[in-house]
Simulated assay, not measured.
Amino acid sequence: MSTDASGGGELDTAVTVTPSAAEEAVSLMESEGMDVDVGGLRLFVQQGGCAGLSYGMRFDNEPEEDDRITEQHGLRVFVDPASMNYIGGSTLDYESGLQAAGFHVENPNVEAECGCGESFRT
């Protein structure tokens, strides 16, 4: 794998990003005045929810040194090594509809999810 020239982690495709997810995230980042060439969306896993683990997302101005970095459709996604153990191979999508809109992680590692889809177990 190649090292990202901007100084953070490795550049790879451990997480797939759909065009709609990238478009929405880049739009949100730009509306907050963030530099989309350096900053990105941090995708992580945290303890919580009725199934044990839940996804978290936030914008970061730059990656951490040991992050895995995925860059697709103009969006950089940062994932820390511990979270990568749970979400490697996942797809980040953005869905919009009449009842709800938001980012969704399609994770092939999930063995069980809670009824509301907010938490999971691997």
Rank of each mutant, 00 (worst) to 15 (best):
G97L: 12
D12K: 05
S20K: 14
N109V: 04
R42K: 12
Q99F: 14
S83F: 04
V45E: 02
S90G: 03
E106H: 11
L11D: 01
A25Q: 06
N61V: 07
D35A: 02
A22Y: 12
N109F: 10
V77A: 05
L98Q: 07
G115C: 04
E10S: 15
V45Y: 05
P63C: 03
E24A: 12
E64Q: 10
E111T: 11
E32H: 06
E106A: 13
G9R: 02
G8M: 08
S54W: 08
G40P: 02
H73I: 08
R58S: 08
M57P: 00
F78V: 04
V105T: 03
G56C: 00
I87E: 09
G39P: 01
E71F: 02
E113S: 10
G115A: 13
S90R: 05
M29D: 08
P81D: 12
P108Y: 04
H73R: 07
N61C: 07
S6W: 02
N85P: 00
V17Q: 09
G56Y: 01
G117K: 04
S27Q: 11
V105I: 10
S96K: 13
M84D: 02
E32Y: 07
Q99R: 13
V110L: 08
S119D: 05
H73D: 03
E95K: 15
F44M: 05
F103H: 11
C116H: 08
I87F: 09
E71G: 02
N109H: 10
E24K: 15
L98N: 02
F44Y: 13
I69G: 03
S119E: 01
G74N: 10
A51L: 07
R42S: 03
P108I: 07
N107L: 06
E32Q: 14
E30G: 05
M29V: 07
S119Q: 05
S83I: 01
A51S: 11
S90N: 03
E95V: 14
S54G: 04
R42W: 11
E30C: 00
V15P: 03
D60R: 01
M57H: 03
A112M: 13
N109I: 00
T91V: 14
E32T: 10
D4M: 12
M29E: 08
D35T: 00
